[in-house]
Design a protein around this nucleic acid. Sequence first.
DNA 1: TGCAACTGCTTTCATATTAAAAGCAGTTGC
DNA 2: GCAACTGCTTTTAATATGAAAGCAGTTGCA
Lengths: 169, 169
Amino acid sequence: MKDDYRSGCPINLSLEVFGDKWSLLIIRDMIFGAKRHFRELLRSQEGISSNILADRLKMLVEQGMLTKTDDPTHKQKAIYSLTEMTIALVPIMAHLGAWGRRYLPVSEELSIRAELMETGGPDLWNRFMDELRYEHLGLPLDGPPRVRATLQAAYEDVVARKARESAVA
Amino acid sequence: MKDDYRSGCPINLSLEVFGDKWSLLIIRDMIFGAKRHFRELLRSQEGISSNILADRLKMLVEQGMLTKTDDPTHKQKAIYSLTEMTIALVPIMAHLGAWGRRYLPVSEELSIRAELMETGGPDLWNRFMDELRYEHLGLPLDGPPRVRATLQAAYEDVVARKARESAVA
DNA sequence: TGCAACTGCTTTCATATTAAAAGCAGTTGC
DNA sequence: GCAACTGCTTTTAATATGAAAGCAGTTGCA
């Protein structure tokens, strides 16, 4: 944990924890991309470099935003898990996505998930958060996870449609 | 405007616009602190330095997050105004504040506003946004502005109470 | 049993960003 | 007429970032 903060303002403190250009993208990839290993996170859309990724993961673990455990299937693999703190960012992710979609030049395939999150509203967010608690914290879940798969399928549909369109054109 | 983005993901684009340690604090001070001049913004809780403030203001203006106009009362003064884009960040600010309050070591006086925003919910946020549209964009408002003053009064009450408490102790 | 591919990083070095402090050419109020 | 204020800019040093290569293993497969 960091022990000296610039101020006790909640917005400032939030920024000190994840207010940089990379931390929230790592969390995004864990939440929406189901990525849990270093090498998976390294393959981000935005091309994070390995030293920065290593640094941020370390810091996020120190701050209680992630936990790191051994992967029983591979002696060299580490599994990163979300904590309740990070799962609680889902509504903020949804708002950020909606805001970006409204005001910035987003690409269609990368914003379809944000659109569905916006349409689904708090009910969908809460369901998704429960599913993340199931996957990352081992909490019980009523029924099988489905939210991320739905978002992913919508993404793939857009990609397939765009491929068809550009093939025709 | 920046013309090359790392990716078209709405969350990434949002981070590219205000995902640094200072931009959102400047916007926070404009929204909650009613600060509109350079020297006012320089007196932030967190102690931003003048070159960084100048750089961020320039960038925020370039990106359409703020506008800059001359102050008719003083030839050297500039007035910074929020745009609809920035006013639309109010719900995100509220969520960020609520998140910080729940998970980080906030100070009581600096988090009372976040508490009131959380309690007030979307109804309060919308009223506040309308008031900001009135103050910064000149849109009509039903009744006089009151939200920021209410938040500010609550802040001052906490400061006064803490002063009394520490005087007694 | 050997070897290619994969594991989570670390190291190196060049470049970019940030921070603190001082300063500046005016403008304003008294 | 002068002190205080205006929005910055400049300088210098410290720090962070980015790209690329490398490393000491581990694993899966032939």
